[in-house]
Amino acid sequence: MEYAINKSKENPLLKKKLDSYTHSQIKQLYFIDFSLFFKGHLNTSSLQERFSLTPADALASFQHYLDCAPENIDLDELNQRYFQSNSFKPLFAYDVRRTLTKITNGISDGFDAIEAQPYPIQAPSLLNTPDLTVVARLSQAIMNGNAVNVIYTSLSSGSSARDLVPHSIVDNGLRWHLRAFDRKSQTFRDFVLTRISKVSLLSNDNDIRETKRYDEEWNSPIKLKIVAHPKNVQFATAIEIDYGMIDGVLEINTNAALAGYLLRRWNVDCSVDAHLTGGEFQLWLKNRNEIKQVQNLAIAPGY
């Protein structure tokens, strides 16, 4: 089994120590490292539940981690709770794409084994990827209810400091963004992750109106009804098969905050009369009139 050590920590002694551990022990170390990195804390019971360990075995795993990276942990001995230290640097190296996928799908093991013979499947390259340290800080803030101060660079106003109360990290198909309450504009907004260059955790004593439950667009479910484009597609059956349409219609349940991203990602013509031309427009939004109040649709093709 191969794995990648964070370059800032890599040395022959550490590699030798890690090589002496079993596959199961390495996975437990990854889980501890990943939890500290993206959640900020961990206790022995979490490790016991995740790997069906006895209390003694869980403590032994934490000791192995301390042997490898003693500067990464602050210990609350009374509650057997381990916190990310101020000098924390992840023990392992994490692939950005894999890690973002894991976070999106609620996978918390962090394990990134390097396959000796990878499967013959390729995915398109990403033009950009966010800084994992930024993602980790935002993940910690969301999971622990903290507000954050960030340095954000926008197209309209350049770089500035903003206080945000984040509640979700989203892959919109083209890039990753943060959904958060912006204390400057007093609204819930989307922030592109790659434009966030610094994150500082603030208090978790937030006004309830700044929390996810008060994000009206996020909590407004809508149904999109998508069909084969009536003008650009000669054989509609091919499109219906592609997307598993039922009676010629693909129904997608989403929310008002994400609808526009989805429609733009799949090049869905959202014009009233299906007038967009070009081979990329193979789909048409049939029920535009039913959801015309959704602000996020402004970014959809032809809207």
Rank of each mutant, 00 (worst) to 15 (best):
H275R: 14
T129G: 08
T277A: 06
L75D: 02
D112G: 07
Y152A: 07
G244Q: 06
F62M: 15
W266Q: 07
F31V: 07
A123P: 01
E290L: 05
N128R: 14
T44R: 12
Y243S: 01
V233L: 03
L42K: 13
Y65G: 01
L100A: 08
A60V: 11
N86Y: 11
D67N: 15
Q117P: 00
G248E: 05
P130T: 07
F88D: 00
V192C: 06
F281T: 08
A116V: 00
K212T: 09
N6H: 13
E290G: 01
T99K: 08
T211Q: 12
A116T: 05
S45G: 00
D76E: 10
S52K: 09
Q48D: 03
S8V: 03
A298I: 14
A300C: 08
D109F: 05
G302D: 04
K292D: 11
S139C: 10
Q80N: 12
R137N: 12
S24E: 13
G244P: 06
K292S: 07
T237C: 00
P55M: 08
Q48P: 03
D76H: 02
I114W: 11
F281I: 04
Q186P: 00
W176A: 07
G244M: 08
N296D: 12
S160L: 10
R209I: 11
V135A: 12
I241M: 01
R50Y: 06
K223E: 13
Q28N: 03
S271P: 02
Y261S: 04
Y261P: 05
L250Q: 13
N144Q: 15
S139A: 10
N146W: 06
S8K: 13
V170M: 08
L42A: 09
D171Q: 10
A113V: 03
F191C: 12
R213A: 14
S52P: 00
S154T: 15
N128H: 10
E77W: 13
S203R: 04
P70M: 11
Q186C: 09
S160V: 03
S271N: 06
N289D: 15
K184T: 12
D269Y: 05
I246C: 01
V135K: 09
R97G: 05
Y3D: 00
H167P: 01
S156I: 02
A123I: 14
V268H: 01
L36M: 08
L285R: 06
S35V: 01
K292C: 01
V170F: 15
P221K: 09
G106H: 10
A238E: 06
T104P: 00
I208H: 04
T211M: 15
L164S: 05
A69T: 11
A113D: 04
Q293L: 01
L201D: 01
E217K: 09
Y82T: 00
Y65R: 06
S61Y: 03
K212Y: 11
G145E: 04
K198N: 09
F92G: 02
L14W: 07
A274E: 06
L127H: 11
K286L: 14
Y21S: 02
L59Y: 12
I114M: 07
L59W: 08
E251T: 15
N86P: 00
K7F: 07
K102Q: 15
R81I: 01
I196A: 10
V294C: 11
D207G: 02
Y261W: 09
A259V: 05
W218R: 05
I121Q: 12
T237G: 00
A136S: 15
P166N: 10
L174G: 12
S108N: 10
D67S: 13
S52Q: 06
L75H: 09
